[in-house]
Amino acid sequence: MKPLEKYNPGVLFFYFLLLASIAMFAANPVMIATALMAMIAAASSYTRDGLGRACVFFFIIFVLTSLANPIFSHNGVTVLLVVNDNPITLEAVLYGVMTGVMIFSVLLLFRVFSALMTSDRLLCIFGRAFPKLGLLLAMTIRFVPLFGRQRRKIENTQKTLGLYKNENAIDTIKGKLAVMSAMTTWGLENGIVTADSMSARGYGVRRSRTSFSMYRFERSDAVLLVLVILSCTFIFFGIATDMLKTDFYPRMKLPPFTVYSVICYVLYAGLAFFPFAAKLRDRAHRAALDRVKMHGGSESSFGEKIRSMYQNETEERSTFGEQ
């Protein structure tokens, strides 16, 4: 297992797609719970600010969807309370909660996906299939930070030239707009240079351009791809044959635990926790490297250094001896 970032972007894309589709189609509490736990683990280890602020927003969505269902849907037999002659049923609440959890975990999954699918990975996928689109995206992605930097530069310069001299809100807004206008001119005029640079390097010479990517398709990618396809086929078969289906109305009925469904749950858990497992392994590996550095590195005490050198030497000798 290599770190998730090292896998081929196409394989990763496919993996996330299937993972999300199963979570959405299965409508199975066990699987959705698994997905939720796995995605919380993954989001906290892959995204920069962990679960962070975005999750508050996701949680609000979760609460809203959970509440919305019992308000709109009055199916189900177990009436909890009656509001304005409308019964609120346990089944509707449960269904709402499950939908909420599902949406919450899928949103988390998108977050992990966004963190992993950096622009160059996404370009690798899109670019292969649609080279022209790939180029357009690549150019835009390059221009966004460039424009941001230019905006700051213009703002600074204009500040010294007395752009915001009246120091009130209207003046500030006017100033910002003037900066935006200057930035537009700058972008358009200098864009011509970029365009010339493109034509000079043969842009438009051929009807179809290729799209190059540094990512290779390795054996480990193939292994992951095959594993993902096999287990997903297995699970999808379960979904298609209603073996994993949960009924909510009129009364909630969980699917029976059969050998098949348990295998499905285990497979799905394996799939869903894969990013987290890969991260853990990677961390352990790095921690081990740090330990080696601490003990055998140049920062260690002289005595330790000698000892480690000596140990290495004896090890080498012993290997020579074996030969």
Binding site: D120, L135, A138, V193, T194
Partner: peptide
């Protein structure tokens, strides 16, 4: 130098 660069990665 800045404006002649078309894409976002050196290898690209």
């Amino acid at each position: 130098p800045d404006m002649q660069i078309v894409t976002d990665k050196v290898w690209h």
